[in-house]
């Protein structure tokens, strides 16, 4: 008698996000719009992201989810709207109005961006250790031994063997490259992580391992995250909350399991019912 046949169970995280305490969202996006000439990238998108919360953005190719992610993360300049971030140093700031040095500093310290293609997020010509150490050196670390120590620590966290520290990422498998990219991004202790199809292009078994790793890190470090993907299984495992996009517009938002198990919008119903059952 239910609209979906998928059985439901609480996600393994049991919903750890939005834990009281904090009175302001970490990130607030207001009426964000980006046009490509006459075409709409994303239109009038608003959402709040609370500390420790993971927001999934799903939709098909061309739905505007990546445009939205790039606008929010400072990689694209939106035409309208505001991106408010609760900075460590000086409270809530409109990221678009920050000076470029401030914004870049924010992007390489308190924010992280995990690209779908690890090659876009790594320096392929330097060793794994240097890839992880770069952000540390970028904020002034000048002690080789300590930088290397932190790099080793992070390689361990992302399950890369210590003896690979001096190897270049070109010699790594796709899954390892993606894990290295995550280590490189998280080494400065960011509070907000943007991920664009983090498991895209990986083998299914590698995907599971990566998802488990991301889930553990998000939980352990209390990260907030915005994850763009077209893979509903990924958001079911990682996201507390879901935003469904179509044609640049948000058509449905809600608790992840609620949106997937009791979708209200026609497009979401189509999306959910299109997933092959294994």
């Amino acid at each position: 008698m239910s609209a979906t046949s998928a059985d439901f169970a609480p996600s393994p995280d049991g919903g750890r996000a939005g834990e009281g305490g904090s009175a302001t969202p970490l990130l607030r996006v207001e009426a964000l719009t980006k046009r490509y000439g006459p075409r709409i990238g994303c239109a009038d998108v608003s959402f709040d992201l609370w500390p420790g919360e993971v927001l999934g953005i799903v939709g098909e190719s061309g739905s505007g989810k990546t445009t939205l992610l790039n606008c929010v993360s400072g990689h694209l300049d939106p035409d309208e709207g505001r991106v408010l971030y609760d900075t460590r140093a000086s409270g809530v700031q409109d990221v678009r109005l920050m000076s470029e040095p401030e914004r870049r500093m924010l992007m390489r310290t308190d924010w992280a961006f995990v690209h779908q293609n690890a090659r876009d997020g790594l320096r392929m010509t330097v060793s794994a250790g240097a890839n992880v150490g770069e952000r540390l050196m970028g904020v002034g670390a000048r002690h080789y031994g300590r930088i290397r120590g932190q790099a080793l620590d992070w390689l361990g966290k992302v399950e890369i063997a210590a003896e690979r520290i001096d190897d270049r990422p070109a010699a790594f498998s796709g899954g390892m490259q993606q894990r290295l990219q995550i280590a490189r991004n998280l080494v400065t202790g960011p509070r907000l992580v943007f991920m664009d199809e983090p498991t895209g292009g990986l083998d299914v078994s590698v995907q599971a391992r990566l998802l488990d790793l991301i889930r553990g890190l998000v939980r352990e470090l209390g990260l907030s995250a915005v994850i763009v993907t077209h893979d509903l299984a990924v958001v079911r495992l990682l996201a507390d909350r879901l935003m469904v996009m179509k044609g640049g517009h948000v058509v449905e938002t809600g608790l992840t399991d609620q949106v997937l198990d009791d979708p209200q919008h026609a497009y979401t119903q189509l999306l959910v019912s299109s997933v092959l059952q294994v």
Binding site: D7, F8, A9, P10, G14, G15, R16, A17, G18, E19, G20, W50, E53, D240, R241, T253, G254, L255, Q258
Partner: peptide, 16 residues
């Protein structure tokens, strides 16, 4: 959603 998540975390359990 975040209120429901907090409720599920502390108050409301579910054994499926």
């Amino acid at each position: 959603p975040r209120e429901i998540l907090a409720l599920r975390r502390r108050t409301l359990g579910y054994v499926s």
